[in-house]
Amino acid sequence: MSIVLILFSDFMLEVQQLAVNYRGIRGLDSVSFRVEPGQLVGVIGPNGAGKSTMFKAMLGLIPKDRGVVKYCTCPLHQQLERVAYVPQRSQIDWDYPITIWNVVMMARTRQLGWLRKPGRSAKELVKTALSQVAMYDLRDRRISDLSGGQQQRVFLARALAQQAELFFFDEPFTGVDTKTEAIMLRIFDDLRQQGKILLISSHDWGQALSQLDRLLLLNQRLIADGAPYQVMTPENLQQAYGATLQTHWQPRFDSNFFC
């Protein structure tokens, strides 16, 4: 039993004192947290709070100033094959001449290895992933023909086809329709059941907040970490958003603060 426990706790994502400076500007200030397998973790904070920066620094995509990010007790950036990272949609040129099928097939690039072409198993994985997000029928479409929600689902399918253990989604809810949001939330839940680790950033969680196991409130530093209802307190939000809070909980917060 104890061996099983040790093995289980080994599959933990651990961030220690992660700090990032970008051209002299503090991007991220000593962020520390741990995530256990099967946790769906939301990251919230105002624009420019460092949500994307934190994801990128965790994966070693941008240089970090300080800190350690470990998974299974080894540095995470040395085991990127276990990670599926979905960048913000705005980072991609959606006029790129490519079909949906081939975008999702990119997921297998690393596993196939250099000089190898996708075989039957890779095609099966891509087919399954596309079916899960209800995009299989559109597989031969060029990506420029898609709506925002469909684009996001293609990226979700690519992440699924990677068969990763850790998933990083950067602002997946921005500009998507309700159908896409429902599909995404269902898949996030599936992945959590399979014991995956999910980190999802959003500047506005809305109703989806209740689905999260945990919420990290970020603005350069980690302001709060816990269950959503523990994190979304007026005091924490004041710290994260200052006086220019522009979200749906504003009225309640204003009255608490100014009265």
Binding site: L59, L80, E81, P87, I98, T109
Partner: peptide
């Protein structure tokens, strides 16, 4: 193809 389509993504898979 991966690199030219999604440079960050390509970096993220190593």
């Amino acid at each position: 193809l991966f690199y030219t389509f999604d440079q960050t993504g390509a970096q993220a898979i190593g």
